[in-house]
Design a protein around this nucleic acid. Structure first.
Length: 149
DNA sequence: GCCAACGTTGGC
DNA sequence: GCCAACGTTGGC
């Protein structure tokens, strides 16, 4: 089993939103590096749910993968903000997967706080200029974050 | 709203 | 294949 971190704008989907839904499709990823990580995810893998572009950016909880990557339907949907004119039914570059709620942290672990943790300094998340929205998390980093809850 | 940093596009 | 211009991300 592998560990990951995925960013979401809470206005779009927050950890409490995922809790209410139970499970949902994770779609709209339009970056090749992030997409390749999506495709590497297996059913049962867990991920830190990160809130981005909001008043309190940080890790807000945990989710898990319940269905491995498949072609992202939003790329073919002209009404979707994630529509990609170059994508077709036969050749859809983009991937989505299904995730489920696991846990909401009692408090969001803020980005500033995470940056203070020596155990996390290798994470792209805390590195200057990094905009990667899906990234792997090592066993050690996973355990370190769990210890901060 | 600002802006640094990055990824993508497209002319050459 | 280079690289300038542009668009986007995301923290502040």
């Amino acid at each position: 089993m592998a560990y990951w971190l995925m960013k979401s704008e809470p206005d779009e989907l927050s950890i409490s939103g995922l809790k209410k839904l139970g499970h949902t499709r994770w779609d709209g990823v339009r970056n090749y590096q992030a997409r390749n990580f999506l495709r590497a995810m297996a059913v049962g893998d867990q991920f830190f749910f990160y809130h981005s572009s909001c008043p309190e950016p940080g890790i807000a909880g945990i989710g898990k993968i319940v269905k491995a990557a498949y072609p992202d339907p939003t790329a073919l949907d002209g009404k979707s903000p994630y529509f990609d004119a170059k994508a077709t039914e036969e050749k859809n570059t983009w991937s989505a997967l299904d995730v489920a709620f696991v846990e909401a942290f009692p408090n969001v672990l803020g980005l500033g706080f995470l940056k203070q943790q020596a155990a996390l300094e290798q994470m792209p998340l805390v590195q200057k200029g990094s905009r990667l929205s899906v990234m792997p998390v090592t066993d050690e980093q996973w355990a370190a974050v769990l210890g901060l809850r």
